[in-house]
Amino acid sequence: NRRVIAMPSVRKWAREKGVDIRLVQGTGKNGRVLKEDIDAFLAG
């Protein structure tokens, strides 16, 4: 159960899209999950 680094707005975006943010690979600094990462995860 790893800790995910993400801005609150990104966490909210993931929740709205029904995405478990822990499954998303972050591409930002220090592995931070970005809004673009959520979109890419949804795109496959």
Rank of each mutant, 00 (worst) to 15 (best):
R11E: 05
A6E: 03
A40Y: 09
V24A: 03
A14P: 03
G28M: 01
G28K: 02
E36G: 13
I5V: 13
I5S: 07
E16Y: 13
W13G: 04
R3H: 12
R15L: 13
I21A: 02
D20T: 04
T27V: 02
R3E: 09
K35R: 12
A40D: 11
R15S: 10
R11K: 09
F41I: 06
K35W: 07
K29C: 10
K29F: 12
R2A: 09
G44K: 15
I21M: 05
L23G: 06
V24G: 00
R15Q: 13
I38S: 00
R22C: 13
G31Q: 06
T27S: 13
P8W: 12
K17L: 14
V19W: 02
G44N: 15
M7L: 15
G44V: 15
A14V: 02
G44S: 15
G44P: 09
R15F: 12
L42P: 04
I38Q: 00
E36Q: 14
M7F: 15
L23C: 12
K17R: 13
E16L: 15
P8Q: 10
M7A: 15
D37S: 02
N30M: 11
N1D: 13
K17V: 12
N30T: 05
V24Q: 01
V4D: 04
V24M: 04
I21Y: 04
V24S: 00
G28W: 01
L42Y: 07
E16I: 13
I38G: 01
D39W: 07
K35H: 09
G44F: 15
I5M: 09
V33Q: 02
R32A: 12
L23M: 14
E36C: 14
R11I: 09
G28F: 02
L42A: 11
V19A: 04
V10Y: 01
I21W: 06
L34F: 07
S9D: 12
W13A: 09
V4K: 07
R11M: 08
I5R: 11
I21R: 01
V4Y: 06
V33K: 03
G31V: 01
K12L: 09
V4G: 05
S9R: 10
R11S: 04
N1S: 13
D39R: 08
L34N: 06
W13V: 09
R15M: 12
K12H: 07
T27H: 06
R3W: 08
N1I: 12
R11P: 04
G18S: 06
L42V: 14
A14E: 01
K12T: 06
V33E: 01
Q25M: 14
V19K: 01
K29R: 13
A43L: 14
K35M: 11
R22H: 09
N30C: 13
A43D: 11
V4M: 05
K35I: 09
K35D: 03
K12Q: 10
R32N: 05
R15E: 12
F41H: 08
A14M: 02
N1Q: 13
L34E: 07
V4F: 06
G44M: 15
N30P: 00
R22W: 10
L42N: 05
L34D: 04
V24I: 12
I5D: 07
K17D: 00
Q25E: 12
R3M: 09
F41T: 04
M7E: 15
K29W: 12
S9Q: 10
I21D: 00
R11W: 15
P8N: 10
D39I: 11
R32H: 07
R15V: 13
R22G: 08
F41D: 02
K17Y: 06
K29V: 13
R3L: 13
R15A: 13
A14K: 02
F41G: 02
W13F: 15
K35N: 04
K35P: 04
G28V: 02
V10D: 03
Q25H: 14
G28N: 02
R3T: 11
A43W: 11
R11A: 05
E16K: 14
L42E: 05
S9N: 11
V24P: 02
W13R: 10
K29H: 12
A40R: 14
F41M: 06
V19Y: 02
E36F: 08
R32L: 08
V24K: 01
P8M: 11
R32D: 05
V33N: 02
G26V: 02
R2H: 13
I38T: 00
M7S: 15
D37V: 02
D39F: 07
A14F: 03
E36P: 07
G31D: 05
D39Y: 07
R22F: 09
G18R: 07
D20H: 04
R22M: 09
G28C: 02
R3D: 08
L23Y: 11
D37Q: 00
R2F: 09
K17W: 11
R11D: 03
V33Y: 00
L42R: 07
I38H: 01
W13H: 15
Q25R: 15
D37T: 00
L34S: 07
T27P: 00
E36Y: 10
R15N: 10
E16D: 12
W13T: 07
D20V: 04
V33A: 02
Q25V: 14
R11G: 03
V10H: 01
R11F: 13
V19F: 03
D39N: 12
D39S: 08
G18C: 10
I5C: 12
K29I: 11
Q25P: 13
I21T: 02
T27G: 04
V10K: 01
I21S: 01
I21N: 01
E16H: 10
S9A: 14
L34A: 04
S9E: 11
I5L: 14
D20W: 04
W13M: 13
E16W: 11
R2Y: 08
R32G: 05
N1K: 14
R11L: 11
M7I: 10
L23Q: 13
L23D: 09
A14N: 01
A43M: 14
V10A: 05
T27I: 02
A40K: 13
G18Q: 07
K35A: 06
G44D: 14
I5Y: 10
L23R: 12
I38R: 00
E16M: 14
K17C: 15
R22Q: 09
N1G: 14
R32I: 07
G26T: 03
D39H: 06
K29T: 10
I38F: 00
Q25A: 12
R2W: 07
V4T: 07
